[in-house]
Amino acid sequence: MTTDTLTIPTLIAQHAEDLAFVTEAETATTLEEFTSQLHTAEDTLVSVGIYMAEGLSDAAALLDQANTGTDGEKHLFLTRAAAQLAHLDDAIDEYRDMV
C-alpha cells in the first residue's frame, strides 16, 4: 500500500470483512465500528492461542489518533496502524482453520 492510498477508509476496506468473521458482527463501515471490532478480535484470537493478533488494540488506538491528529501526525499514525495490521489476514486465516 502506497502512502497515497494509506487512509483510514482504505484500511477499513482492506480488513473489515475478515474482521467481521472473527467478531461475528456486521462488516464495519465506520472507524468507531472498526476499532471496536479490532478490540474484540484481539480478545477472541488471543484467547484461542493466535498471539500474532496481539497489537490489534494498539492499531485501534493509532487509528483514533490518526483521525484526530494533524496532517503530519496522520501519516505517522496510519503507517504505524498499518504495520500493526500487517499480520491480521494471517491470524484470521489461522482462526478460520480452527473453526
Rank of each mutant, 00 (worst) to 15 (best):
E73N: 05
L31G: 10
D97R: 05
E26W: 02
A82W: 06
D43E: 14
S57H: 12
E73R: 01
A91Q: 06
L56F: 02
V48G: 05
E42T: 06
R80M: 10
T5M: 03
A61V: 13
F21H: 04
H75Q: 08
I92E: 00
V22N: 09
T30C: 02
D97Y: 09
V48D: 08
L45I: 07
D4F: 11
E24P: 01
Q14D: 11
A20S: 13
T27C: 05
G69A: 15
T27E: 09
F77M: 07
A25E: 15
E33Y: 01
E42A: 11
E17R: 14
N67D: 15
V99S: 05
D4M: 06
N67Q: 10
T40F: 12
S47N: 12
E17M: 11
S36V: 10
I8P: 01
A82R: 10
H15N: 12
T29K: 14
A83E: 15
T3S: 15
T70V: 11
T40R: 15
L11C: 10
D4N: 13
E73L: 07
E24I: 00
E73S: 02
Y95D: 05
Y51N: 15
R80A: 14
V22C: 14
F77G: 05
E17W: 09
A91I: 08
L88W: 00
E26H: 06
E54M: 11
L63G: 05
I8G: 01
T29R: 14
E26K: 11
A83Q: 14
M52W: 12
Q37D: 15
H87V: 04
D71F: 07
E24G: 00
S36H: 15
G49L: 04
Q65T: 03
A91F: 04
Q65F: 00
G49I: 05
E17A: 14
Q65L: 07
Y51P: 08
T2F: 01
T3F: 08
T44P: 01
T30N: 10
S36I: 07
Q37C: 09
L38I: 01
T5P: 05
I92L: 02
D97I: 04
A41G: 10
D4R: 09
L76V: 07
D89T: 09
D71V: 07
L38Q: 06
L19F: 02
H87G: 05
